[in-house]
Amino acid sequence: MKDTLLIIEDNEQNFYMMRFLLEKNGFTVIGAENGPKGIEMALSQKPSAILLDIQLPEMDGYAVAKELKKHGELADIPIIAVTSYAMVGDREQVLAAGAHGYLEKPIDPETFVADIIQYLPKNR
C-alpha cells in the first residue's frame, strides 16, 4: 500500500519539486498551502508523515506543529520540518515545537527521499 504524505508548503516550486521526487519514489502526495488547511487535511486524511514548512503565511510552522500535537489521533504521525531557516536555534525550536525531524533547504534531490523514509513509522 502506498504511503500518503502531506506537504504543508506555500512555495509552489518547492511543493512541486518535493511532490515530484516523492511521487517518483511511489508515495501519494497531498498538499496544503497554509497551516489551517494542512491541519484539516491531516485530520481527514491521516497521512503517514507530514512535511512542514516553517515560514508560512498567517500561521507559522511552529504553531501548526503545536496544533497538530493537540490532536491525539495525530500523535503517531511524524512531522518533518523542511525549512530554509538556518539560524542558530532553529533546529532546536522546531524540534521543541513537536517536529520529529528537520531537513534544511535547499534539499538535496539525491538524498531527500531517503531522508524522509527514515522518519516513517515503519522504519523507526
Partner: peptide, 25 residues
C-alpha cells in the same frame, strides 16, 4: 533571517530541479 529564507527558497528549487533533471527523473 529573512535573507536566509528568501535566498534559500529559490535556491532550493534551482538545486532541487537541477538534481532531478541530472538524475534523469
Amino acid at each position: 533571517a529573512t535573507m536566509s529564507h528568501e535566498l534559500r527558497t529559490p535556491m532550493n528549487s534551482i538545486i532541487g530541479f537541477t538534481g532531478i533533471m541530472l538524475q534523469g527523473l
